[in-house]
Design a protein around this nucleic acid. Structure first.
Lengths: 206, 206
DNA sequence: TTCTGACCGATTTGTTTAAATGGTCAGTTA
DNA sequence: TAACTGACCATTTAAACAAATCGGTCAGAA
């Protein structure tokens, strides 16, 4: 990489960070490009030199967060050799990421449901990557004769949807803006219980 | 019951049915008390002879639907002796009820999240009844040595939340107004798969 | 290459006004 | 006296319009 593109990435990174902060404070829709530019002491038009439009800037913020999470997740999992323990860790790590997103204001009705196609793609992509990670764990479990599944892809998808569903149910019951420690403990207790039963349900019966 | 209260219940029942129909067409918020009264050829004030306010009328509609569902559900389950099969039936019956509610327009962001306390109570009550039904099934499974759970109440609650979560995830992905046959099949396939794994996870290991 | 001010059409916001809504009540009806 | 009603009220919602703000563009300066 040359100096230019490095500089460009630096500047783009600064913009992403500034946008990330403001999106976290006010939400993406309530944050204007003018505000982001003013915070960086540059003109609004400059933002459009680095990002074609607001949607792509938002996408960059989302994908930055997703990449960070997937990175730490892989590290946290790969070193562990027991597939069941891997699934347990996955569930709790994923929940921790959820808490982070909620407390950042990144999870809300409008952020989830009526997403623009571009952002929806990012989420789909993220979920696919998650699925593949879980698939790897399941396949490992099959190979060492610990698990027995019909279809690792379907099972991984189901596992993630169950976790997502539990979060969603918990989230819908209380109208959450942020998660405090008590709520988080309660939710992780349920997620752990569900994961344990799920794992038992995958176990190979001798 | 005397003639008077029977007549009163008849009339109240008519009002509930009329309201049910209109709520289904336009939603509770977009249906006015005037409309309901006009459809029954009575004055708006008369509605307030039978129901203290709109909220309680809506509550009556909700509880009528819930009672009907719980009734058919119990019938559909009680005659079956295998607990695992009971859980499977429960899951699919519950899904069928969900489809019914969605296609009636009874499930929507505003109907779910920002409910008035009164209606929220009805839902809590309904969920408690569901939980007790599932608990009965689980206890039966424990008694015949088929299941092994830490806590039947917690497990029942978890089972229902997982089902609810899967519906919620499916519902949030597509922005549903009604469920067609394909979507319903897809959803029941997933619910069945989750239920099967869940049941396996409850099985007593010899 | 990087950045900007001036500018555009479209959307959002604020404000005002009229209509409709949920709810009440004294009194009629049968 | 239980069942019902028309007239009425305070509050919410709908409509309409103006002003501000928004995302985005572009010729040209640095």
């Amino acid at each position: 990489m040359g100096t230019y593109s490095e500089q460009k990435e630096d500047k783009a990174g600064l913009i992403i960070s500034a946008a990330q902060k403001l999106f976290g404070l006010y939400g993406a829709e309530k944050t204007s490009m003018r505000e982001i530019a003013e915070g960086l002491h540059i003109s609004k038009a400059s933002l459009y030199y680095y990002f074609p439009d607001k949607e792509n800037l938002y996408k960059a913020v989302i994908e930055k967060e997703q990449a960070e999470f997937l990175g730490t997740l892989e590290k946290n999992i790969i070193d562990n050799s027991d597939p069941a323990e891997c699934l347990r860790r996955y569930a709790l790590n994923r929940l921790s990421y959820f808490k982070y997103l909620v407390n950042l204001g990144r999870v809300s009705p409008e952020s989830i449901s009526d997403f623009k196609p571009l952002i929806a793609d990012s989420f789909r992509n993220f979920r696919e990557k998650e699925k593949k990670l879980v698939m790897q764990i399941l396949e490992k479990g099959e190979n060492i004769g610990q698990f027995k599944t019909r279809d690792t892809y379907e099972t991984a998808s189901l596992f993630l949807d169950i976790l997502r569903g539990l979060r969603s149910v918990f989230f819908n019951n209380k109208k959450l803006v942020s998660i405090n420690d008590e709520e988080y403990k309660e939710l992780s207790r349920r997620v752990e219980a569900a994961t344990d039963i799920f794992i038992k349900g995958l176990m190979y019966k001798k």
